[in-house]
């Protein structure tokens, strides 16, 4: 177990270094950062001096090493556009994105599993068929369109929910501003959370349904029925637990994509998260912010992957091979 964790950690570090290399190399080609930092009237000598000061004349390897060693301690430099430390900027925007992502991930998982189990058990029923048909819309409509449609229906026509922003936020300990504690904050969260989670929900639902149908055909389910267990025990005790093993992986990885794809939803709803920050940085070629964002997303994926692998151990006893005398 310990060996497994250490091995996975080493792999994670390798992945992060690769992403760092890509991020670093990629942004060397998006334009000369000096050009966007200085005004028209700056002399060539001054530019050269600035270039030297920022270390832009050092060999590639040296620059990369400096980038990585600073990134490790959370120093991604200063934003060209906002003249603030990048890490500070991202940390101040992160709570908004994480709250949005977790709420929509939770929504996607609960409804995805619920609908998936229902449609698997009531195969052929009219409600199941309707859910399956409607789910096609969730899969096929692009996120921004769903967002705009929801705004049109619930914010413009019915005027039930706000169409943009985060509502009132409460400061928790100076480093986390939450919208979950105020009514306007919660109301503001509903539409973006549904928009962001709808695709993942239909994906989880279809996965759970397929997996559940598969499990219901297995011998151990047949044997559980032959022992006279109640439908409830067979469906939820035996079938669902086995269904969730593969579903956990996908859901975990989907949480990563939710955070990454929050960019579109944040743009549509003007949600003040890191996604919106990234979009604005792209517009101004704010390389440090873009690089930091890329690294952050990579870190989220790596960490989630690690957690998912560990969850596997908790759920599936067959992977715990630490016992002596196995296979008696």
């Amino acid at each position: 177990m310990t060996a497994f964790i250490i091995r996975r950690l080493l792999q994670s570090i390798l992945v992060m270094l690769t992403v760092a290399l890509v991020a670093f190399a990629l942004f060397r080609f998006v334009g000369d950062p000096i050009a966007s930092m200085v005004g028209q009237e700056t002399t060539l000598a001054e530019r050269q001096e600035l270039r030297e000061m920022l270390g832009l004349n050092d060999p590639f390897i040296v620059q990369f090493f400096t980038f990585v060693s600073r990134a490790v301690v959370g120093d991604f430099g200063i934003s060209y556009r906002l003249q603030q430390p990048v890490m500070e900027l991202i940390l101040s925007r992160l709570p908004a994105t994480l709250e949005l992502a977790l709420v929509s991930g939770f929504f996607a998982f609960i409804f995805g599993v619920g609908f998936g189990v229902y449609t698997a058990l009531r195969r052929g029923g009219w409600l199941s068929s309707s859910i399956m048909t409607i789910s096609l819309i969730g899969v096929s409509l692009p996120t921004f369109l769903i967002g705009v449609l929801l705004i049109w229906v619930f914010a413009v026509e019915f005027q039930w929910l706000p169409s943009f922003g985060r509502g009132d936020v409460v400061d928790l300990g100076g480093w986390w501003r939450t919208g979950l504690l105020t009514e306007s904050g919660r109301a503001s969260l509903i539409l973006p959370a549904i928009t962001l989670g709808l695709y993942q929900m239909t994906l989880i639902m279809r996965l759970v349904r397929a997996e559940m149908l598969e499990v219901l055909r297995t011998d151990y389910i047949k044997f559980a029925r032959a022992r006279g267990l109640t439908n409830r025990a067979v469906h939820f005790g035996h079938a669902l637990k086995n269904t969730l093993v593969p579903v956990i992986t996908i859901t975990g990885l989907q949480l990563g994509s939710i955070i990454a794809f929050a960019i579109i939803t944040e743009t549509v709803f003007q949600w003040p998260g890191v996604g919106a920050l990234f979009i604005n940085s792209v517009r101004f070629v704010d390389v440090p912010v873009m690089a930091a964002y890329l690294m952050l997303i990579a870190l989220v994926f790596v960490v989630i992957n690690l957690i998912v692998d560990l969850l596997y151990y908790v759920v599936d006893p067959r992977l715990r091979v630490d016992r002596a005398g196995a296979g008696h």
Partner: peptide
């Protein structure tokens, strides 16, 4: 369905062919 379920296991038991797949792997 319900009265028949009560008979299964209680009055008629069944042993299947493949012991490797008859037991739920996730429960002791």
């Amino acid at each position: 369905a319900e009265p028949m379920r009560r008979i299964r296991g209680k009055r008629i038991g069944m042993v299947f062919q493949d012991p490797l797949t008859s037991l739920n792997p996730l429960y002791t």
